[in-house]
């Protein structure tokens, strides 16, 4: 950050960071309890991991994961762009990140329907659905944030010195990606 930021603005940035930190901590507790529920259900189950036949097919999930990772990279790119004042690149990055997010959701939906599982299957279907669903909701929320930032970028709200919202959006997006990596490991790998 350059030296032009005013103290008041710095204070606001700090508040925004603190807020995001607390929110993400709380989100972590949320996903943590979900994952613990999954593990508890799983250990309580004779014959689990009964790999649902389709769970063992990793191609689509891996593809999805890479889409999300790519999207995070775009977001990173956009954040770097605005830090050096390139508003155009910011917009492009945000738009791409959003699109890739959408693609990810579509992929996840496809994955869920393809697997043939239903929420009302014996417990596994339900918990799979809940984990994917919770995460998908967060991806959607992240897309709303990125989208709003895109809108504001369009209105010229951001420049080299004022881009707190972009930073925040980017970090949230990283977080959502990181959560997915954990979920991916939990659901598909162990």
């Amino acid at each position: 950050m350059t030296s032009m930021a005013t103290p008041a603005h710095q204070k606001q940035t700090l508040a925004a960071k603190a807020t995001l930190g607390v929110v993400l901590a709380s989100e972590t507790a949320l996903f943590g309890t979900l994952v613990m529920s999954y593990l508890l259900l799983r250990t309580g189950q004779a014959g689990w991991p009964y790999m649902h036949p389709s769970i063992s097919r990793l191609a689509l999930p891996v593809l999805n994961t890479s889409v999300l990772l790519l999207s995070a990279a775009m977001s990173w790119q956009s954040d770097r762009a605005i830090q050096s004042g390139k508003a155009g690149q910011l917009k492009a990055g945000l738009a791409l990140a959003c699109l890739l997010g959408l693609l990810f959701i579509a992929g996840q939906t496809f994955e869920f329907t393809r697997s043939g599982m239903r929420p009302d299957d014996p417990a596994f279907g339900g918990v799979f659905f809940a984990l994917m669903g919770f995460h998908a909701l967060h991806v959607l929320a992240g897309m709303v944030v990125l989208g709003l930032n895109l809108l504001r970028a369009q209105l010229g709200d951001f420049d080299q010195d004022r881009h707190t919202a972009v930073d925040m959006g980017t970090w949230f997006w990283y977080y959502v990606t990181a959560v997915w990596l954990v979920l991916f490991a939990v659901l598909y790998l162990i």
Partner: peptide, 17 residues
């Protein structure tokens, strides 16, 4: 979810706990 879309998180007979 259990009560609306009939998942089985807490229904023992269906693999819940």
């Amino acid at each position: 979810l259990d009560r609306t879309i009939k998942t089985h998180f807490f229904v023992v007979s269906e693999g819940g706990n």
